[in-house]
Design a protein around this nucleic acid. Structure first.
Lengths: 119, 119
DNA sequence: ATTGGCAGTAACGTTTATGTAACTAAAGGC
DNA sequence: GCCTTTAGTTACATAAACGTTACTGCCAAT
């Protein structure tokens, strides 16, 4: 997503989109609500995300302070990601998105079926 | 945003992102919560969106059934957009995003200042 | 000696999203 | 006749986002 000009804007929704508006970020954050998760487990649980994109998104989330990266100096390596204090504050949005998703998907699917049938 | 493979996914957050995950969609929907708004007013109220993008996004929202387009046959033309029933169900998400945005922006700004100072 | 697992990185290519500028129609005012 | 207004459209261009493939280091097990 092309960056907003955050400094120009005062709209709170613009701010929210700036930090968690990426295609994958809400999904990644949603996987972390139950505690720290390893890199490999994230990659396995999120369908169709490439490791490169996952790495990039995690790095951005870390730079913004939404998540914390724990790197254990072991072989083979072990790296875990967990929500920070700031990251926890996103949970109400994730919760609302979770509650909305399935119902809205059904409603829209039916809406489109009706539109198609109408012609 | 590249489309998700919605049919493959069962994650509600993925569904939500599919329909309102675009850069501008939550912002547009946020402008409609207080009733129908004309095209030109939307363009004026949303900073930095081009008319072309606004048109496209409105068309997508209409196809998904989130908003309703009212076109009055006048000269010069008048077109208004308003939230549909499905569109109303998005409001909890918009509300959560609104409440989160400003506070998160401040928190992240301070976080980054600290990181920079630490070196 | 070879293989496997983990958490990446590098180089490269494609696709979407977004942006700019110019243009349209048709009525009303000057 | 000419200008203004509204809600777009068209053609063109760029910038992000996203993806694939191949590669790395290091230890343990086979």
């Amino acid at each position: 997503m092309k960056k907003f000009e955050t400094h120009t804007s005062t709209c709170p929704i613009v701010h929210t989109m700036t930090y968690i508006g990426g295609k994958w970020k809400p999904i990644i954050l949603g996987r972390l609500v139950n505690g720290a998760v390893r890199f490999g487990k994230l990659a396995a649980q999120i369908p169709d995300i490439s490791r490169k994109i996952l790495t990039e998104q995690l790095k951005e989330l870390e730079e913004d302070g939404l998540i914390i990266r724990h790197s254990y100096n072991e072989k083979p390596p072990r790296v875990e990601y967990e929500l920070s204090g700031i990251g926890q504050t996103v949970m109400p949005v994730l919760k609302a998105m979770t509650e909305l998703g399935s119902r809205m998907h059904e409603a829209i699917t039916e809406h489109k079926r009706n539109v198609t049938r109408a012609h």
